[in-house]
Nucleic acid binder design. Structure first.
Length: 202
DNA sequence: TTCACGATTAGCT
DNA sequence: GCTAATCGTGAAG
């Protein structure tokens, strides 16, 4: 898809879009587009898989430890990026939800590449298929050139944005427990588009 | 100051 | 299916 075509068929949501319960924001983000304007051109993908991380009552969430230097963005105003490094080598991208002062964020886990696919392929030489470019939280940030420099970035404006489709057809969504956690496995807070080949796992 | 571990990935068996 | 890579974070002392 051409960048102009993508911009014409989507719109930037207001900050109130994110100022809702985290689980609602997570579901609403499915089918939307993540865009990163880089020096090498526009990188973009359709969000096909997310996870909700809550505040109180969710021991799997980073924010369960309270307000710290690392997690300050999660407690900040909604619609901003919470980026963290995992296993000392990969980065993961979250969208902050809930009103300012309340913790809650949505982990973006997988994308269907839309724009800048060649640039993504050069950034992800290990991916041999298009479906492997961004089918995991670390793969996604690598393909999209998202790093810790984007910590706290405003997703409603600027170089890293999320855009909502103008006419969003109803999506069939599947719900499971979150991937890779050791606590709160009983909570079903992973959401992905059913029968989609770009999700990280089925 | 020390230390165990993690919202992962890629490569090998 | 198994495991190395690699380091900031947060809890404990």
């Amino acid at each position: 898809m051409q960048p102009a075509e993508l911009l014409a068929s989507t719109r930037l949501p207001p900050r109130t879009f994110y100022e809702r319960p985290t689980e609602d924001v997570a579901r609403a983000l499915l089918g939307s587009a993540l865009l990163h304007r880089t020096a090498q051109g526009l990188l973009a993908g359709r969000i096909v898989e997310v996870e909700a991380y809550l505040g109180k009552g969710d021991p799997a969430a980073h924010s369960s430890a309270g307000l710290t230097h690392r997690t300050r963005a999660i407690f900040g105003p909604p619609g901003h990026a919470y980026v963290y490094r995992i296993y000392g080598m990969h980065c993961c991208l979250n969208a902050v939800a809930e009103p300012e002062g309340l913790p809650g964020c949505v982990l973006i886990r997988a994308l269907e590449p839309i724009c800048g696919i060649e640039a993504m392929q050069s950034r992800r030489p290990a991916a041999r298929r298009r479906a492997d470019l961004a089918n995991g939280p670390g793969k996604l940030t690598s393909a999209m050139a998202i790093g810790l420099n984007l910590y706290g970035a405003d997703l409603t404006r600027g170089q890293l944005t999320i855009r909502i489709p103008d006419n969003s057809p109803p999506l069939k969504v599947e719900t499971t427990c979150r991937v890779g956690i050791s606590k709160a496995k009983e909570l079903d807070l992973r959401f992905f588009i059913a029968n989609n080949e770009f999700v990280s796992r089925r």
